[in-house]
Design a protein around this nucleic acid. Structure first.
Lengths: 114, 114
DNA sequence: GTTTAATATATAAGCTATTTATATATTGTA
DNA sequence: TACAATATATAAATAGCTTATATATTAAAC
């Protein structure tokens, strides 16, 4: 599993991206999907997830719709038009970040030091 | 510039990786190199850098050697054998992280939702 | 001649996103 | 009948960072 320090900071982007590609999801399903996509390497804790969702709802990026499924409440989160704009920006940032990290990781030692 | 939230957590790995590839460096040079490698997209502040270096020195991953250059003190940081082990682990983690992020970012919408 | 930018290291206070712990409740499985 | 899985939620604590501040020299600009 990837240490949380590293993942810290990209969780919001990950959540938004999932909602964009999968459509409306409820919290529990989001944690499942992240684990599935990353083969268990990234685990979204509920203590991190729900504050993120609530915050995004508050700022108008997400809207909710409650559903009763087997006597369990499911709260579906869906992107608003504003949310779609936010995701686009966040994805762009994340791509730049990935690119920068790769440039650093791919750096090979110089011959002068070999 | 990439928001600091995203970079937070990978700074230590970046510093260690640079010291591995470039050989001993002093703090100021490290900040310069990171900016250069990432085309200004990642900026290492001194408030972040020096505590990282001091911590790595304390735990035995780095050793220091002072040099006087133009009446300016330069403190060179170099990896110890332990440091080399730590870098290897950190790089491995970072690669897994990058891979996981890419898997999430590259996810395309399903036809069933199209 | 004097101000400004660049070089060089350092620390303390404050912020904020996260982890950890805790709470609650139902359904399916062993 | 107990345990695992499903489902949401919050509060306290942590930790890594940013921001601000301090100090000192050299080179360039004006």
């Amino acid at each position: 599993m990837i240490p949380t320090d590293l993942i810290k900071g990209s969780l919001k982007t990950i959540v938004l991206k999932l909602l964009k590609e999968e459509g409306p999801m409820h919290g529990y399903a989001i944690t499942r999907k992240v684990e599935e996509l990353t083969e268990g390497k990234i685990k979204l804790t509920y203590g991190a997830l729900y504050p993120i969702l609530h915050k995004l709802e508050k700022d108008g990026s997400l809207v909710t719709a409650s559903e009763n499924f087997n006597n369990r409440i499911r709260i579906y989160y869906a992107l608003t038009p504003k949310g779609h704009t936010v995701v686009a920006d966040k994805i762009k940032e994340l791509n730049e970040f990935i690119e920068s990290l790769q440039r650093i990781v791919d750096t090979k030692p110089r011959l002068s030091h070999a």
